[in-house]
Amino acid sequence: MFEIFGIPSQALFGQLLIGLINGSFYALLSLGLAVIFGMLNIINFTHGAQYMLGAFIAFFLLHYAGLNYWAALVIAPIVVGLTGILVERVLLQWLYKLDHLYGLLLTFGLALIIEGVFRNFFGSSGLPYRVPDSLQGGQNLGFMFLPNYRAWVIVLSLIVCFATWYLIERTRLGAYLRAATENPTLVRAFGINVPRMITLTYGFGVGLAALAGVMAAPIYNVSPQMGADLIIVVFAVVVIGGMGSIMGAIVTGFGLGIIEGLTKVFFPEASNTVIFVIMAIVLLIRPAGLFGRRT
């Protein structure tokens, strides 16, 4: 035990860890939002509900199908991704030609429907989800105790974030994707099926949200409203980072998580609001966001 700025190291590093965990989820979710926004020009309000769906699917798989966490990690994103593809084909694709706001309103309505159904069956209280056996316990690092599961969440989300970055910025598929974001008509003229790419992008983005949901299930309880408040914070993260850059979304997500964790140590009353305050400051000095291009 030692002290930093009069704060016991245990408390400081403990909150830093929580900050990193929150940051992992901010990064994963804002990444999905940014990818979807890039292709569909729609801000996906259902993202929080799809994150919650991921957690619930993990819960169902464990309790009704006997499939463990590792299976859920694969199955939940696929299931949610497929429902996302269905949503895109049936509803969203008719809105691209209209004002942005209709996409927002539609996805907000969908979020209300999903959250309402789950609240109806599961109430507002959380359901516990066990940490998988292989990730029980933790490491004593000398200055703090690091639970294995939390370390896993941080590592996995870093891997997923950078894999996504690599996919979009460094592969041929990603190049098509970026080209279609810039000028869909021209890319279609080259014989690339842009509408299908848009559909798959939406499926991929919401799949990321579901993956985050499965990862969150053992840390926070599984509850119907777990996504609703989180998504608003993620919106603020997106405003701060700007949606133009994948790396920007990742860095902003983790950075804000850490800042939020530190605020909990030094000024706990402001921990709920610090991200919004940062957003206001960023808007004052850099209206386009930290990594954004002026639109």
């Binding site: 919004f276 808007l283 004052l284 209206p287």
Partner: peptide, 25 residues
Amino acid sequence: SLAIRRQGIYFAMITLALAQMMYFF
């Protein structure tokens, strides 16, 4: 004056985030 610094979809997200901040207050 904060929100009109950004257009379109960002405007909606900023107003939502500011409202949520004041909810916590």
